[in-house]
């Protein structure tokens, strides 16, 4: 995902982030987590794009990175959940 190229760096109080299709299943969960950390923002998911409306004082790059990290965390978590369950099972089952 090329964040640098994907961010609309205009003076608008929102940024658009293009989401790689492999991350689309995790956008809803990432959105919830992101809004916990940045409650003043709002997020619209528009197809392959995510639009984050934000206070003008917030840095675009930082916001984009934070959202991307939320996506990463959700993807890693959901994709490894079965394995985590397996680890717990391996430890508690005879």
């Amino acid at each position: 995902m090329d964040i640098d190229g994907a961010i609309n760096r205009s003076l608008k109080d929102y940024i658009d982030i293009e989401i790689d299709p492999s991350f689309l299943p995790y956008t809803a969960a990432a959105k919830i987590r992101f809004l916990v950390v940045y409650p003043s923002c709002s997020i619209s998911i528009l197809g392959d794009d995510v639009r984050i409306s934000k206070d003008q004082g917030l840095d675009n790059l930082q916001i984009a990175k934070e959202f991307r990290h939320c996506l990463y965390r959700e993807k890693i978590y959901q994709e490894t959940l079965d394995m985590r369950r397996g680890i717990v099972r391996a430890l508690v089952e005879k």
């Binding site: 990290h69 990463y72 965390r73 890693i76 978590y77 490894t80 394995m83 985590r84 680890i87």
Partner: peptide, 11 residues
């Protein structure tokens, strides 16, 4: 090969 799930944080 499997990796043990990683968590991360920017320090």
């Amino acid at each position: 090969m499997i990796d043990f799930p990683l968590k991360f944080r920017e320090i």
